[in-house]
Design a binder for these strands. Structure first.
Lengths: 319, 319
DNA sequence: TTGTATGCGTTATCAT
DNA sequence: ATGATAACGCATACAA
């Protein structure tokens, strides 16, 4: 494996000059440059990137933390990040956490160890205090409202979205509104829960624990949702489903079981995924690809910025 | 940022001893060990992993090449790889290629540059000769039958699967059989095309170019498929669809348009994804998570092995 | 059991 | 415009 030293010898110059040629630095004569270039083409030389990383103290790599990559929400976010990373000559290191804190910590560890220059956390499990400890080692970008903390972020206002959606359904005459989420403990879910509570109080509606259904991530999770609903004495008449995949699954189940949508059950999905368009499911559009793009740029930027992205209500047939 | 040298000074030992403690090597006295450990805990020390990489010539990182991560086939493969990587203390570097050769080359470049120890190519675009050039720099693992070439691989026999499926449909009385694939030029598609040709010849059936529909990757691509089929004079009576997502989309379209399945159109999907179970779509099961696991172990192994995984026909209502 | 010295391959500093 | 040399932080062969 030939290295920069060998090249220097071959071209009859110093390693510095070789490095200059390699990095397109100015101040190197035409003759020496060609001599080096020749040595390179003769030798099948390749930079040892690890040496570059050590020397520079940077790796041009960004970590991406997400619970699972086979969920459309995260897959699209990731796609947006990946596209932008590619165009800016950055590599992505993937941390699939399954919502386990230990794995999120591993990613943070890599930041500390300088294996990645910054970290994008698509869905957080750690406490703020933990994240703040690691801020000294590199940029950390989040997908939620950080409320003035020293992180960059790109997010949608989950609270507002949820409240508006609830009010919309209420105006349509729904008083028994349930919702389906991924996990109960996440930051987004807490915001939704707050919006839900306030909505109920404001409109003098009773709180029903059973109307909140979690562990809804995939199309097939709809089966479980339907089982639960059919089992209830007073099932909800409308369902906000934070994933179009699950919403599509519910619509499919209802078709099989002859439940009329929206007459017997109204459905609103999230993200306006293509499946929602095809199955004509009303959905809250969230610009995931754009968010990914923005997240990436925040990750490589020195400045701390917080960008709210806006949602868009797409009304179709299911509500 | 404190380093190994600082620790040595703090603990009153040599850097070698510190390194020994750090790496759990034997031959270090209890006293010195505790002295070092103390220095570590006092100093908020963290290994600079880049230095380790340079020194060792390895990175404990594996590259994964795939066209897109938001497709269930690749997402599941990736999930399988990621789970195993995690358990074996390896990191994954993602290369999303969109089937562009240049991006695949970038991944190979990283192998050459020693940024990754090995490379898993889930879907190949490069020619064999190109890949073989890079074999000297690290292990390359593929998801297809490599026919004796010096690569490890985990694969299913796409040719056999396709032929069996065609024969199965033929026995059910279908003579006009179409199929939907992702891209026409991939290795799998070539095998399928061969199986298709041979099947037609053997049974004296005419070849219809229009029965082969490509660019079918996502649920929503089904709309385009249906448009094409409805426009044909003699549409196929059965469709092999190499993705359950697309199959599910087609089933959905048919329901909307009142096309009876399987009477008017029989459907067989691929991968036995949960959506297939839910929508009762017949499917060819392929153990993607297991394949991912196996791929990972081949990536970190010194030996070259080739493992064929077996498929399983799941008969449900759509055929 | 411990330490010295050297190597890993590159970039950055500084002098010329 | 060019080059010698230090620095990056760690691992390891070898000596003691």
């Amino acid at each position: 494996m030939t290295n920069i030293k060998d090249l220097a010898r071959m071209a009859g110059v110093s390693v510095t000059t070789v490095s200059r040629v390699l990095n397109n630095h100015p101040y190197v004569s035409k003759e020496k440059r060609t001599a080096v270039l020749e040595a390179i083409s003769e030798s099948n030389y390749e930079q040892n990137i690890n040496a570059v990383h050590l020397s520079k103290g940077k790796t041009q790599m960004i970590g991406v933390v997400l619970p699972f990559s086979d969920h459309p929400y995260f897959a699209l976010l990731l796609k947006g990040i990946a596209k932008e990373a590619l165009e800016n000559n950055y590599k992505l290191v993937l941390f699939q956490t399954d919502y386990m804190e230990s794995r999120e910590l591993e990613a943070l560890q890599m930041l500390k160890q300088k294996q990645i220059d910054s970290l994008i956390i698509c869905s957080r499990t750690c406490e703020w205090s933990v994240l703040e400890e690691y801020l000294q080692y590199g940029t950390i970008v989040l997908c939620e409202n950080v409320n003035g903390k020293e992180f960059s972020s790109t997010f949608v206002n989950q609270y507002t979205i949820f409240l508006r959606t609830l009010e919309f359904l209420f105006q349509k005459g729904h008083e028994k509104i349930g919702y389906c989420i991924g996990r109960k403990t996440g930051p987004s879910s807490k915001l939704r829960a707050r919006a839900y509570q306030e909505f109920l109080e404001k409109n003098n509606l009773p709180f029903q624990e059973k109307y909140i259904i979690d562990q809804c991530n995939y199309f097939e999770d709809a089966e479980k949702v339907m089982d639960m609903i059919l089992y209830m004495d007073t099932p909800p008449t409308a369902l906000i489903v934070t994933s179009d995949q699950v919403a599509a699954g519910i619509v499919t189940c209802c078709q099989k079981q002859g439940i009329k949508i929206p007459e017997e059950l109204a459905i609103i999905g999230f993200h306006n995924e293509p499946i929602a368009k095809m199955m004509e499911i009303s959905s809250i559009e969230i610009p995931l690809l754009d968010m990914g793009k923005h997240l990436f740029h925040q990750a490589i930027s020195k400045d701390i910025t917080n960008k709210e992205m806006f949602f868009h209500f797409i009304e179709r047939g299911t509500v």
